[in-house]
Every structure is written in C-alpha cells, then in structure tokens.
Simulated scan of single mutants.
Amino acid sequence: MNLMEFKAELEKLEIPIQYRAFAVGHAPQLPYIIFYENDSDNIFADNQNWFDVLNVVCELYADNKDIELETKLQKLFYYNEIEYNSTETFIDSENMYLKAYDVVITFDSLADVQEKEIDKTNLKTLINYIGTLKADNFEIDGFSKLQTVLAYAKAVLIDEETTQDEVYESEIDLLNALNQLIFIVVEVDKTNLKSQIYYVKTLSSFDYTAESWDVLRVALENAEDAYIDDNATQSDVNNVLNKLFEAFKNLKKSSGGFEKGVNLYAPLHWQAQGFVGGLNEYTGKNKSNSWQTQSDFIKIPQIAFEITGATKGSDSFRILLYDYDKKIIGYEYFYNSGTHKTFTIPKKAGYIRITGDKQTPSSVLINKTKIEFGEFTDWTIAPEDEQHVQLQLI
C-alpha cells in the first residue's frame, strides 16, 4: 500500500482528509484527519529499492473524545494489516483532542513503475474460434453483425496501448454477437450418392483393367466415407458423387481372361507332376517326409481386399497369410469336398502361400476375381521353381 492508496482508505471514514496541513483559514469543522510521511526504513540492494517502508503520522482531531471514530480508524488499520502505535493529547488553546497514530506502510517499490501486462488470451481464443465459422451456416444479419464486432476485436488485439477494460469489453461484445447467431439447418440429400454406391458395388474387377478399377476403388471409398459422415455438406456429397461417376465412366474393359498383376493360376494336381514333400510353412525349409506341397510366396495385389477359396475333391488345403516381412500372421483352413469360404485380407498382410495334401484348391478368388483350376486351365512353372512348383502372378 502506497501513500495514495493509504489516503483512499482514510477517505472511507467520510471525514475531511488532508496531507500535512489545511491552508490557513480553510480548516474544516471537526473532526478531520491530517497525515504525513515522517521518515522511512526502506529495504534496498543492487542499487535499487525493493520495498518502501514508510513511517507515517496520522492525526485525528475532534472536539471531544470520539471513541466510535477512533475505533473505525483502528479497524481500518487492522483490515489493511497496518502496524501502528498511538498517543493522545488535549490542545487547550484550540479546545480539541488530538489522537496521533504512528503507522508503518510497506509496499513493493517496483510494482508502481512496472507496466502491468494486459491479458488477451481469452480474446485471442474467441477470435480464432469465430474464424472457423462458415457464413453459409447462419442467417446473414447476425453473421454480418458478428463480423463487425470481430473487426473491432482484432484491432484491440493488436493495439499495444489498449487497456484491460477494453479487452474485457471486446470479449463481452463477441460473446453477445455469438449468442445472437441463428443457425440454419440444411437437409443434405444423399439419395443419388446411395444409389451410385450400390450400383458400383455390383461390378466385378475381373471385367476391367487394374488401373481403371483402382481409380474407381478410391472414389468408392471416399463416397462411402461421405455417405456416413453426418457433418458432410451438400457440396461435399456432390463432389464425391461426381468423382465416383467420373471414375465409373472411365472404366476400361479388360481384354478378357487373366490380367497381369491381378489373377493367379496353377495346375490342379501338384502330385500329378511327380513332386512330393514341399516347404515348411513356418520355416520355409524343405520337408520331404510329407505329401504336403506348397507354393512360394505370392504377393497380394494392392487393390485386393478379400480372398475366397473352394475345395474340389477329398483333400483339404490352407491359405497362409504373411506380413510384408514374410512372417506368418495366420491362415484360413479349407477342409473336405465342396468347402467354400471368403475372408477379408488383414491390413498388415502382404503375401500368401497355398499348401495342401496331394491336390490344389479347385478355385481361389482374390479381389472378387475368380480363378478356376482344372485340367484344361493354362498354367506355367518358372524353371527355377520347378522343384517346389511356384504359383505365378501373370
């Protein structure tokens, strides 16, 4: 508390207050207070004062012993944590009482000279939030008013001489303008998008080139994301719908039969080729003590998302799944005659191998493209892989 703040506290007594003395002939009626600085015991170091310790004399003059007023003054000292001692004197020549208080006032010497930093954190947060709002979502009158208030708030934010009160006032104006916004509820029509998605999902990748089908696949994924997105605008829906339709129009028919990079084929009977044994599905080493035969690693095409297997004959087989480091992560088992099963390719799967006893699967489907195996099916075996019969990507 400095001297100005001390004077402000004394004024709460609602009697005349004056520093040192009233001008001659202008003394008010009793009671009144005179205060003045007597001396100081300041705390200082490093060539500057850290705390001012002022010894102040506060004199209460009254025409009689005013216990009630003295008590109010002493309570004021108590509530403000001001130390004091007092003496009392009766001035015969003036016929009045003098109650003198020796008080000690301590305050931070630097606090009054250091500029207080203006807190603009909340104002900046409000401005950034309003910047994310879209005019199309609100009635124009309320949104226009908000923009006017926003412009003033931005000026306050960059004004280095603005006061804390001006910052608070700007925050309140922004909040009031936000509360007056009226949200426009727009019904988004996804009917055409739903129909186009349904139709595209009836198509088969077998009928089209891998390149054109991959463009359609990406467009379909984006369309399905927009369809289930509750926050998608009509513009978002129209955009993905147009891209899906464009990808559909640009589909190119395949030349027929097997397409490079998509389809797999192999002979029906590995045993019929005179091969016995095979590779251990876990170690990759030969295992000549078993009738089980196994393909080499077959890379899964990037556009593939599911595999279907079906048996033909009495023997079972497995489709083994490996990650991109060719470490086994699982398998799907197909057993007995006539078994048919479809499963989704795990995201981390990069390769498959097919293993079975005496007989290959009758058919394998990758990415909904069916590849039949039979005695009339064309097939090739790479010369370097004749020992273990490698299935080929063609």
Rank of each mutant, 00 (worst) to 15 (best):
I130M: 09
S316A: 14
F183C: 00
K190T: 08
Q164P: 05
F248A: 01
G374Q: 07
T233F: 05
I371Y: 10
I105D: 02
E171Q: 08
V57Q: 10
K12A: 07
T311L: 09
E59D: 14
F77N: 05
E139Q: 15
F22H: 03
E117H: 06
D136T: 14
E259L: 15
T89H: 08
E68W: 01
K75T: 13
S254T: 08
I15G: 03
H26Y: 10
L193W: 04
E246C: 00
T191D: 10
D46W: 08
N95D: 06
D108C: 06
D296R: 03
T71A: 13
K287T: 06
A247Y: 00
E11K: 12
V262D: 15
P16W: 05
L76V: 04
F305Y: 14
L175E: 15
P267Q: 13
Y208G: 00
G261Q: 12
T162V: 10
V103W: 04
M96A: 02
Y227N: 05
I172Y: 03
E211T: 05
T121E: 10
Y129R: 12
I345R: 09
Q234H: 05
A247L: 01
N64Y: 15
E88I: 08
L3F: 15
P361L: 07
E375K: 10
Y198L: 05
S86M: 05
Y208N: 00
I118T: 01
D165R: 05
L13S: 05
L193H: 03
K370C: 14
S290T: 10
A266S: 13
A382N: 15
A27E: 13
F275C: 09
E11D: 14
K348C: 04
G142N: 08
L146R: 03
N238T: 01
S93K: 06
I300N: 10
L110G: 07
E117R: 02
F317R: 12
N179E: 13
K358G: 00
A210W: 11
H388F: 12
E384N: 09
N176G: 01
L30R: 00
Y78G: 04
K348W: 04
T308Q: 08
A155Y: 06
S295M: 03
N238K: 02
Q390P: 07
D357E: 11
Y227G: 00
L365I: 12
H340V: 12
K120F: 01
Q18N: 11
I127Q: 04
M96D: 00
E384I: 05
S86C: 02
K327H: 08
F206M: 13
A151K: 12
A310V: 12
G313T: 01
F258C: 10
A219L: 02
S295F: 06
L98A: 02
D385P: 06
S254Y: 04
A153C: 04
H388I: 05
S40M: 13
W291T: 03
L126Y: 01
E37W: 11
E386K: 09
Y282D: 13
E259N: 15
M4A: 15
E70M: 06
I394R: 11
P31Q: 00
S255F: 10
D230P: 04
Y168W: 04
I118N: 01
E160K: 04
T125I: 07
A247R: 00
N122L: 08
N336K: 12
Q164V: 00
L321N: 11
V57T: 09
E259D: 15
L174K: 02
N128M: 04
F343M: 09
A247D: 01
L60F: 11
Y227F: 07
E5N: 13
Q390F: 12
Q234F: 06
